[in-house]
Structure formats: structure tokens, C-alpha cells
Nucleic acid binder design. Sequence first.
DNA 1: AATAAGTTTAACTAAATGGTTAAACTATTT
DNA 2: AAATAGTTTAACCATTTAGTTAAACTTATT
Lengths: 201, 201
Amino acid sequence: MTTEEHIIKAAREVFIRKGFQGTKMQEIADEAGINKALLHYYFRSKEKLFEQIFAEAFGQLIPTLSQKLDEITELETFIRFFVPFYTNFIQKNPHLPQFIIHELSQNPDRIRSLAAAQVFPFPKLSRMITQAVTEKKIRPIETDSLIINIMALIIFPIVAKPMIEGVIFRQNTAAYQNFMAKRSEEVIETILNSINLQTNK
Amino acid sequence: MTTEEHIIKAAREVFIRKGFQGTKMQEIADEAGINKALLHYYFRSKEKLFEQIFAEAFGQLIPTLSQKLDEITELETFIRFFVPFYTNFIQKNPHLPQFIIHELSQNPDRIRSLAAAQVFPFPKLSRMITQAVTEKKIRPIETDSLIINIMALIIFPIVAKPMIEGVIFRQNTAAYQNFMAKRSEEVIETILNSINLQTNK
DNA sequence: AATAAGTTTAACTAAATGGTTAAACTATTT
DNA sequence: AAATAGTTTAACCATTTAGTTAAACTTATT
């Protein structure tokens, strides 16, 4: 692993954990096991380093599913694949959505250009939903609503973990973990029911 | 309006908008129309000022509904009241949940004590849900899951506004607003369907 | 009018932080 | 062996920022 890779890895962790403002160059250097001078030697400025990290982070959030979206044609099949897949991914990168949301609201300009490059593979999914509505397989619902509902049910409990753990589970970490372990199943059932697609349990 | 109130108001806006790290005392002073010296004269330190704001903010997020929870006994009735009520509240304080989530994850210790004081009026709501399940009015679901589902569907689209507006609506602000205008209805239908409580449309 | 509370001004300190620099050292390449 | 890329050390600068202080000024209170 090269020094540059060490830096990138360290920067990713610190930036995502603490946001742009909260991140100190010294902390990145420490985490990477090098010194500040070398950090600046590789990446001239904090801004430049941040750009790399953000572009990469934002890229991760969306694209992997683009492949599967080409294989699957049935909405139910897609949901049953997507929910655990995405839940799993977000659980492995729990700070990612919050980081993106936070930075996007703190400094939209710094990010706009980077984000614009990313393309969500929407059309295919939209068509899938529209078709299901037309064929009366599911209740009438706008494609945007359904997509956002799914995202909300997956992402929110992870983004709001400190809130949920504190307010709902009263600092009982085990209770939260137990809740999250069954989350994927619950989201599938909630979604399928919410559009009147009976679960075949 | 006293100077103290001016400060509180200014601090609330700036803190919620920019978080603890992102907030500068000078900015609060400017927003309050006073100078930094006076700001420190009223609230000795940034920490002290922050505590006040956070306690108040966190308090707002939860309690108002405690009243209604005493009047209503039917789960469907409660959902039909709660969803628009809470959606409306969050829309008026769009930065509040994100602020709480962000600060809670940045510095749990700074907040733990404050948050612990707040009590969500859960028991009553939990009983309402449990009873509905027992009476087979709704499908079997854990109370925590249902509550978190409702919160997720309401809060996520607002917290993730910059993300949704950018990625899903492609910077089309009008499209987002149009989506949010109908959001409350959609959430009610989604929730009621998701627990097999037919909407009577 | 005198007193005190509230407020401003402006200068200051101390610490944190992003960024720079020069010199020395180490490992690798030629 | 000489040259070069990579790395460290440590001092340094400039800026930002939280917080302090003292003196003057303004507005209410007595």
C-alpha cells in the first residue's frame, strides 16, 4: 500500500466521520501514520484532498446496483434484491449518507459539480414501477415516491442511529442491533404491503 | 424582545444551520445585531450557549404530540393526525433533525445528559399499536418498527433534501416542492397500507 | 442629578490550524 | 558512488477564532 493510498484511506475515514469543518489535516496525517508536511506534499490543500474523497464517496452510494437493474425485470424481485443489498452496503458505510447530506447542505457549491457527474440509474427503475402500476400489480403510486420511501426506510434508521439508540432504545445498544438485524426483512414487508403486493410468507 | 432573546434566536438559527463546529461567535453576534463582547457577557462561552439551544431544540422535536396522544385512542386516527402534524412541524424546522443527528453523532457526550432528560411519550403509543395487533386490526409488527417507519418516511425527505433535489429531481426545485406538497397524503397511505389498514378513499 | 445596568468600542491574549520552508536523512535507482 | 524520490523534523508564518479587558457611552432607575 503506497503512502498516497494510506493518505486517501485516512482522509476518507476522518472526513466522513467529522465532515469538512471538523477534519484537521494533522488528524489525517496521524491516521495515515505520516506527518503534515508530507500530507501537503501529496495533496496541496485540504480542499483538493476533500474533492477526491467526496467524488469517490458519492460515486459509491449509487452505482453498483446499475448492473442488477439490467438483469431484473420484475418489481418484486428487484425490491427483494435491492433492500438487503442496499441495507448491507449502508451498514458497512454508516457515515456515508450523513456525510453526503451534511456536506451537501453545508456547501452545495463545493459539491454541485462533483455530484452532477454521477447519474442514478433511474429510467429503468421508473419504467419498472410505472409498468407495475399500469398492469395493476400494485396500487397507483408515483415512481419518485416509491423510490424515496424505500431509501427512507433503509437509510434513516442508520443515519439517525444516535437519535434512535438514545430516544427509542434508551442507550440499549443491543436492542438497536437486534432491531437492525431484522431490519431488512421488515423493510421488504413494509414496502411490499405499502404498494399492495402481498408477501408470500 | 430582550437582548438575551435576540441572542437565543440568532444562536438557534446559526447553530442549527451550521452545527457546533461551523458556528462562529462573531456570526451569532452579527445575526443578533450586537457585538462579541456583549455576547460573552450574556453567555460566558460557546459551549454554554450551545447547551441552551440544543436542549430547547431537542425538546421541540418531541413533546407537542404528548397532548394529542391522550385524546386519541384509535391507531388510524392517531396516524392521520400525527403524519400531517409532524410533517408540518419538520417542514417549518427543516434543519432541526439533521442538526440533532449531526451533533449527536459528532459529540454524544456533550449531549447525552441533555437528551436523557427528554422523554418521548412512548408507552401510550406502544400500547395503541400492540392493541391493534392483538385485535388483528393490523398485521403483526413491532411497535418500534412502526414508529421508526413513520419517522423515516416523514423526516428523511426533508433531511435529505439537497440529496433528493440534486439526484432525483435534478436541481428542479419546483418538482421537489410539488413532491413535498403531496407528501403527507402519500405517507399516510403508505403507512396504513403497510400495516394492512385499508385507506377509506 | 446621581447611580447603575446595559452596551459599545477597540485592543488584546492565547490557542488552533492551514500551509510553507529548509535542512537532514533514508531508500531506491542509475 | 552519485543522483534522485520519498520522508522526517522542526521551526515558522498568517489567519481565524474563543475569550478577556478596560474605558467610554447610553439608557433606564432612583
